[in-house]
Design a protein around this nucleic acid. Structure first.
Lengths: 192, 192, 192, 192
DNA sequence: CATGAATGAGTTTTCATTCAT
DNA sequence: TATGAATGAAAACTCATTCAT
């Protein structure tokens, strides 16, 4: 579940500091010196590991997006009943959200940003297309509501993100229970 | 529905230009000179109408948040049945989203940003509290599912935003029909 | 003889300061703040008038190269005898060197530098081609020695530059007399 | 003719790489890491052989200036006639220019630069003074034109450099013939 | 000897803001 | 009111140099 091993202490410190600051202040609101300060390295050191500030966000984005995607795809098991599959995916995402709240917040925040490179945007697209495929299949056996697959997908993802955001902003407890309750709502929303 | 009348052409041009740029590039990614250029005014002129760049976002945020809140609250009619009330609120928001997509995107993007002042954040809280009140009432008559009011609220709002984002990013058509289909899902999610 | 009128005081101050520093320390050895300091303007002001440090050298180069070229071309008078024409061109360049020593030193120093744009390099080529033409014509009437035109041209120009450099470096007096004496040598070198 | 034997491969590689880069981009335009990269050594290695970037240019300058001076002085033979002596010096310099074009270009480019130390500048002066002595002597027997010795010296050197530069910039062929033709011009310029 | 990660001062450049006109 | 030239602090990034390995 944990992504890429920490080969370089400094690089890891930089990635960690950057993650926090990008979540707190956004990409343009975060200066490279501020990242250096929080990572306790010199400003120049950042450029040993990342060719630019953009390369830094992209590295961060790719790392955690891949971790999230791995989490989701590994939780898909087509041998199970649709109800179980849905719960499984939702709750794995919930577990990820609870374990890596800053990281997920970062991914949410930088969704489709102009400074993400083609590769990062490609991962997004890929996941979306896979989602559409699975939903469409489930619709043929009437396991899911008969509306455009994109709507079901975006609806459920939006709902999840809504719950998650409320949790990290302190309006809901960031617990499995919160996500479980939301999951029941979500299933009713999408079921056939 | 349209907010505050345009007293000053220049001020309006500035607000319009700023809105677009803040959506395109974010607050920190937008420079005051670039706002001036798009608004076709001199950079100094912006400071006749707004004391700072922060004052500008806040003015923009307050204007459109209030417009959105007015839209939502005016669509609440407790004499109607819960199902009708829900549909009414959801579809009014949809109409707003279709009429003012950039403006709604702006509100979404700047949600809880550190440069928003207390007044702006206050509006948020206020709306949330009102929502909790209404939901809780509806729950007492078993019109809505018996889970914490906050969860229902954040779930529905998150789902709406998910659909809206997908629409402005081109993955779904930005039409009333899209929102109607999502509304049916949403009602099933929250109904008692 | 004086190039472009001084419309903007600050722009002129910047150009003047940059000229001096580029001569003293070279392009890469001169920092933008140091130019600002000598010009008595803020560092940012330089970027109101010149889009980059490169644009600044290019503006400077073009201005003075054109002034020099104008000086030389205006001194060509094909109705005069070859001996007189040669003396005329040489002494006009000498007058330019004495009047604008820093400026000529700047042009010499930045000859063919990698940061000069195509337009600047174009002027060089143009002048060279014109020179070859004139020399070749003079050779047909046996007024000039019968060696490749380029050799005569580069020889005479090199000799002139040698004298000029020695003068600004203090090894020769920077006077008309110095150039007159050199002119006699030069004519003997190239005459037919 | 070849200067200082290569004791250390690495040091030689560094000197060679530095020479090329200083010619291509100038002293301030060349970074130590770029020298290291072209020399295929680590950046730190450069500091084992040269105490600083300045020490590196100075070592390079001294090495090649001395080689050039040795070449010239060894070609002076006061027993020969002035015409022969002149040709001999000129053509030896030409041979040097053809054999070591980059090295000569380097010497030309860094002439009198502020980062050269006293020793380097001393060599310059010494050669100049020797030249003045020889020229003055030749003038007493009316072998050379009766103008200030410095003028003859700077004129001839300037002409040589002009031809050389044109050659390395591709406007003239870098061949003995080019220099022979220029030598005839030069002799006519300076002869008594 | 040789390396290259690490540093931090210095580079070019941008930008929020001011102010004389 | 409106302008836009001017400012200077701060941004992203580079680089000469050091030092632990």
């Amino acid at each position: 579940m944990t992504p890429a091993v920490a080969v370089h202490d400094k690089a890891e410190a930089i990635l960690g500091a950057a993650l926090e600051l990008f979540v707190e202040r956004g990409f343009h609101g975060t200066s490279v010196p501020s990242v250096a300060e929080r990572a306790k390295v010199a400003a120049g050191t950042i450029y040993h590991y990342f060719s630019s500030k953009e390369a830094l966000v992209n590295a961060l984005y790719k790392r955690w997006k891949e971790a999230l995607v791995a989490e989701i795809t590994s939780s898909v098991d087509s041998s199970k009943a649709p109800r179980e599959q849905f719960r499984s995916v939702w709750m794995r995402m919930a577990a990820f959200a609870i374990k890596y709240p800053k990281e997920l917040a970062f991914l949410e925040l930088h969704h489709h940003a102009s400074y993400l490179d083609a590769e990062c945007l490609g991962i997004e697209r890929q996941v979306f297309d896979l989602g559409v495929l699975i939903v469409t299949e489930a619709q043929t056996i009437q396991a899911l509501r008969n509306v455009p697959a994109g709507i079901l997908l975006e609806f459920a993802q939006g709902a999840f993100v809504g719950i998650f955001r409320a949790a990290i902003e302190g309006r809901l407890p960031l617990t499995l229970e919160t996500f479980q309750q939301a999951e029941q709502c979500a299933w009713e929303a999408v079921r056939g």
